[in-house]
Simulated assay, not measured.
Amino acid sequence: MTDSPHFKDWDLSHWAYLNGKPEADAVFKALPEDFVVTEQLPFELTGDGENLFILIEKRELNTQQVCQHLAKVLGKRLRDVGYAGLKDKQSVSRQWFSIQANVNSDIDLSQVENENVKIIETRRHLKKLKVGALAGNHFDIRLKQVGMIDDLLRRLAVVKAHGVPNYFGLQRFGFNGNNLNWANRWSEGEPIRDKKIKGFALSAARSYLFNEVVSARINQQCFSTPISGDTFILAGSNSYFTDEIDATVLKRLSERDIYLSAPMFGKGDNPSQSDAAELEAKVLDEHPLWQQLLIEQGLEFQRRAIQLFPLNMEWKVDGEDVIVSFDLPSGAFATSVLRECVNFRD
């Protein structure tokens, strides 16, 4: 698939499955309560400071809508409201927000709660909550009316043991991939003034390229096995390096101290070499306009792990439903875990 300047509905079902397409199917997100996500901060709140942290349980609202609500009812500027990450609207999300406030005055929170917003906890902290300041998320997901439940249970066990491709989820690309259409229009020279749309377009194009490389590695049977010139990324870090494939590297991979990686394209050199560089270039070069756009907009070349291992993964059968729970690091998608296990139906 090559870049096109025209609007279209993108078919994003072509990315390869690690263990073949699942046979099981289920109803997904019939109700917000079927998808519960709880943020995990990477630091302890100090209990004092000029920022009030509020853990809010939101229902059928996106993160920006909660920010706007908080700013309005608390009489604050929107920029005084901090958050770490965006959460799905069609969910019950327990998410932290910070409000800049004088240390010598209390904030009246009496107007914050409504049928879609509940306060769980409040605590002071020294610094504002910034985007990306997130350790991860815990998910509790109810899959309803599961068909071929034995296939789902078998696949859950496989995923727990061996992980999944670290694909960006479909929500990254917008409804029917419309964020990719914006990337096409922009890269073809159409001016886009809306900063939010620009951000969505850049993120979608970059994520699509990453997913394409991951899918190519699965199809070429080198998803779990390193090839010459591969770039490895350190667990829990953005640091990456290239190295010869030897017993030490293989041991570190098996212990999940390092992971295989794929490009997050931008300006700068790709550290991959030899076979890995050839594989990545073949995929990336199918989208020269997106590459040019990402470079022109100043995004730095980075790497992202291609393997994702859910932590604390558990599941239980409840009649025709299956309830699945797991933890994921920041930036990982629960839908990418479920994609390897079950097909969603309306």
Rank of each mutant, 00 (worst) to 15 (best):
P22Y: 13
P22R: 10
E23P: 05
E23H: 05
E23N: 09
A24W: 13
D25L: 03
D25T: 15
D25I: 01
D25H: 14
A26H: 11
A26P: 13
A26Y: 08
F28Q: 03
K29C: 11
K29N: 13
K29P: 11
K29D: 08
A30N: 06
P32N: 06
E33I: 02
E33C: 10
D34C: 12
D34T: 03
F35G: 09
F35Y: 00
F35R: 00
V36W: 03
V36F: 10
V36H: 07
V37D: 13
V37R: 05
T38W: 05
T38H: 04
T38L: 02
Q40F: 01
P42F: 03
P42L: 09
L45C: 04
T46Y: 11
T46E: 13
G47T: 06
G47A: 08
G49Y: 12
G49C: 07
N51M: 02
F53G: 11
F53Q: 10
I54M: 08
I54W: 07
I54H: 02
L55M: 10
E57D: 09
E57W: 01
K58H: 14
R59S: 11
E60Q: 09
L61C: 12
L61W: 14
L61I: 06
N62D: 15
Q64A: 04
Q65P: 07
V66A: 04
C67R: 08
C67Q: 11
H69R: 07
H69E: 07
H69P: 10
A71C: 03
V73A: 07
V73K: 06
V73L: 12
G75Y: 00
G75W: 00
K76P: 14
L78I: 05
D80I: 00
D80K: 00
D80N: 05
Y83M: 08
Y83C: 02
A84M: 05
A84W: 00
L86S: 04
K87L: 13
D88V: 09
K89T: 12
K89N: 14
Q90D: 13
S91F: 04
V92S: 01
S93E: 13
R94A: 08
R94Y: 14
S98P: 02
I99V: 15
I99N: 05
I99M: 12
Q100W: 00
N102S: 13
N104C: 09
D106S: 12
I107L: 15
D108T: 04
L109E: 10
L109P: 11
S110R: 15
S110W: 06
S110G: 12
Q111F: 06
V112N: 09
E113S: 14
N114F: 11
N114S: 09
E115N: 10
E115F: 10
E115G: 08
N116E: 06
